[in-house]
Design a protein around this nucleic acid. Structure first.
Length: 380
RNA sequence: GCGGUUGUAGUAUAACGGUAGUACAUACGGUUGUGGUCCGUAUAGAGAGGGUUCGAUUCCCUCCAUCCGCC
């Protein structure tokens, strides 16, 4: 039986809002919940696409704005899409670049028309409009595109400023949706790129409600919760996730953007979030913080200097089967690429496996106690 | 042996007759939709002895070490 819906829930947890679903894209199906490592320029730093597949990483997310800075769009277009370009068989998401309003090195200012960035490679000013952004993401030919949103600063930001960003995000979302529909109007639905709207509003329930309701009118394929992971408390974050979830229809996939610690992912799943991404596991790996079944491991600490133990004795990844903490620590301290690669491989394997286990627990009806167990390890 | 040079954290260096800075290294944190090259905190220093001076790491002397040249 062919399923025509974009998103289908196949299993629901009885005690929590956790769920297992299937997202249908032009490239095929992918089971939720899942976590996407960031592949900003088409690669997850230090890893090959084969390695991602070997670890069963279902999807990665690249960045349309960053790819556009140095001919990335032209190249992916010539290759008929980023998936073929990077030889990755999983699902490709693309982020618009709205988040790069957080990058002082390239962000100049934001106007009603769009966001102005400076290309650091040639000094050129780029006016990123919602329409242009949709064209870029279609040329990249990712399976799922994100709207251009307006990212409010977290620090020294008033509620009025966040309200402004909500308003701008809504206006841009309308323009994104309209243009995206127009550009794909001649394509049959199964061959179309999906488009997700991004809900803003900071930690304010009323603003989040406004943002959610405005975006719901536009009927996106999925809904992202943006603007987190920047300094708010985990409590504030999950209050909003809970509230936004209560406003969204059940049959829409929900994507909590930028969130990537093991605990936050599991807590997100508990509240019914389906998709996550973050640079946390890859960036932390390169900088020596590893995730394990025993909690966080800071491998650069002195107590790992001579340790013959694997990163995680309960982990089945090739790194844990073959290499000692001492070796990985030594390589990382000396800034050797091999150290960064082994650490990255483990962290991505760990998170992917963690979610696979979470899915099993949801099916078995023991997700809640599983979450508690993991939480205890990370609180120690 | 003679003449000269230079001695400042683990390393490399800076300034100064009046609180000795910086970088790297080390230790411990952080890291959340670009940044493989990131950020924060801490530890840690005047070769030894004497003199001049209110006060010396700084000026003077002796010794020690160093490097260079000569025998």
């Amino acid at each position: 039986m062919v399923n025509k819906d974009t998103f289908t829930i196949i299993h629901k947890d009885k005690k929590t809002s956790a769920r297992i679903g299937i997202l249908q894209t032009k490239k095929g199906k992918v089971e939720t919940p899942f976590f996407m490592p960031v592949a900003t320029r088409g690669s997850v730093k230090t890893l090959t696409s084969e390695e991602l597949q070997e670890m069963k990483v279902p999807a990665v997310i690249s960045n349309a704005l960053i790819l556009s800075l140095r001919e990335g769009i032209i190249i992916t277009d010539k290759f008929k899409g980023i998936g073929k370009f990077m030889n990755y068989k999983g699902i490709n998401f693309t982020d618009s670049g709205g988040f790069q309003m957080y990058s002082p090195s390239i962000y100049l200012k934001s106007t009603k028309e769009g966001v102005i960035f400076r290309n650091p490679l040639n000094g050129e000013k780029i006016l990123m409009t919602p329409e242009k952004n949709m064209e870029l993401q279609l040329k990249i030919s990712s399976e799922v595109a994100m709207c251009l949103d307006s990212m409010p600063m977290y620090h020294n930001t008033t509620k009025t400023q966040i309200e402004d960003s909500v308003n701008k995000t809504t206006i841009w979302a309308k323009r994104c949706k309209a243009h995206h529909d127009t550009l794909q109007k001649n394509l049959p639905k199964p061959k179309r790129q999906l488009l997700f709207g991004i809900i803003q509003g900071g930690k304010y329930e009323d603003l989040r409600e406004t943002s959610t309701k405005q975006l719901l009118k536009l009927d996106f394929d999925g809904y992202s919760i943006g603007g987190f992971g920047l300094g708010e408390t985990i409590q504030e974050e999950f209050n909003i996730v809970k509230q936004v979830k209560s406003l969204l229809p059940e049959n829409k996939p929900v994507y909590l953007m930028g969130i990537g610690t093991p605990i936050e992912i599991l807590k997100g799943i508990e509240l019914g979030v389906d998709i996550f991404d973050s640079r946390m596991p890859t960036q932390n790996a390169r900088r020596g913080t590893l995730f394990t079944s025993e909690g966080k491991l800071r491998i650069l600490r002195e107590n790992c200097k001579f340790s013959p133990e694997p990163i995680d004795k309960n982990c089945k990844c090739f790194v844990c089967k073959n290499y000692s903490r001492a070796f990985i620590r030594y390589q990382l301290i000396h800034d050797e690429l091999t150290g960064k690669k082994l650490a990255t491989y483990h962290n991505i394997y760990y998170l992917t496996k963690l979610i696979e286990t979470a899915k099993e627990k949801i099916k078995q009806g023991t997700f809640q106690s599983f979450l508690k167990e993991v939480e205890e390890k990370y609180n120690e």
